[in-house]
Design a protein around this nucleic acid. Structure first.
Ligand code: SF4
Ligand code: SF4
Lengths: 162, 162
DNA sequence: TAGAATACGGATAATAAATATCCTTATTGC
DNA sequence: GCAATAAGGATATTTATTATCCGTATTCTA
């Protein structure tokens, strides 16, 4: 089990969009070039973000994406779920129903203990992702990335932002 | 991203093995029949458990598997990692290295903030799985499953255990 | 007003992973 | 010696991921 690479892409794109000045848009093309990613396929990830209402888009030249909400109000979980979906990572196929000793017509009340533990763990994962916002991410990145690289990156980006 | 179904299978099989009397073995065939699963493929999951030293096996008629450790010393995480592997669920492809503004020969010190958050969440998931033992699972199941079904199930199993 | 750049969605192809089956070998109990 | 078993290799089959291509509607710009 491994998350799709689109998750990493989407998170990095959101980090860039989070640093964009108010009202500016950044195109798929620019985001793809900046990260060295296939434009057409990255576009699908961005469309997922758009459908999840995390970003807004506009058409035409100088079109592209911008965040739809303040960075403090978008979490890692929002992005991950936009790309991966909201389904739990443990799917129960109800194999206990195949128990040969199971009485005719007997129907289990709810999810069994196995599923509940797996779902609790899934929720712990999500809770952690929910606890980190894009604002927090940008703050950390700003501290860690060398100032010159940070600035030249945003110069590069701004030159292409509509 | 979804866990393979072998995880569910392995957990249920461990739950059965956990209820087996000291020194008895249960075969793949019996476990597959009990859960209504494809024997050959379930066998692969059990082999994973065996390689992870969670279960011991013996050959010949009346052969099969038994737990290699006390139920209190086997956790959900042990079983999940035996089947799914120990790799983290977020794989970093280091796309920041593609940044066009990145200086020649510049090399990032360590994993970036994005990866660290994802890995923290992964660890939260594992911590939760680590916190539940097979002993705890069996205790819960024993409380929840109707006594008659519980007993007839283990009668069924014991008749086939070597 | 024409043209270029864009997001969006549908279709489809390529690749990788999960699921499943088959077969051979070595070991064990009877 | 025979039957049942775990183990592991080989190989299909099916599904998910990754990727590309194209048509349409929209928006900006010149
Ligand atoms: S995980 Fe629980 S609910 Fe799902 S099949 Fe197994 S016993 Fe049933
Ligand atoms: S997640 Fe972090 S370490 Fe991984 S590619 Fe992105 S920036 Fe680099």
């Amino acid at each position: 089990m491994i998350l799709k690479s689109q998750v990493e892409w989407a998170l990095h794109c959101c980090a860039i969009l989070a640093g964009l000045p108010e009202g500016r848009y950044l195109s798929t093309k620019a985001l793809a070039e900046f990260h060295g990613l296939p434009k057409e396929y990255l576009s699908k990830a961005l469309q997922s973000l758009s459908q999840a209402k995390l970003v807004e888009s506009t058409l035409g030249p100088s079109g592209g994406y911008r965040l739809a909400r303040p960075t403090a109000e978008i979490t890692f979980l929002d992005v991950v779920e936009a790309v991966e979906g909201k389904e739990r990572t443990f799917a129960c196929s109800n194999i206990r129903a195949n128990n040969p000793c199971r009485p005719e017509g007997y129907c289990e009340a709810g999810p069994c203990a196995v599923a509940r533990v797996m779902w609790d763990a899934d929720e712990a994962w999500r809770a952690k992702l929910r606890s980190v916002s894009l604002a927090a991410l940008v703050q950390t990145l700003e501290q860690e990335i060398p100032t010159t690289l940070w600035q030249s990156s945003f110069q590069w980006v701004l030159k292409r932002a509509g």
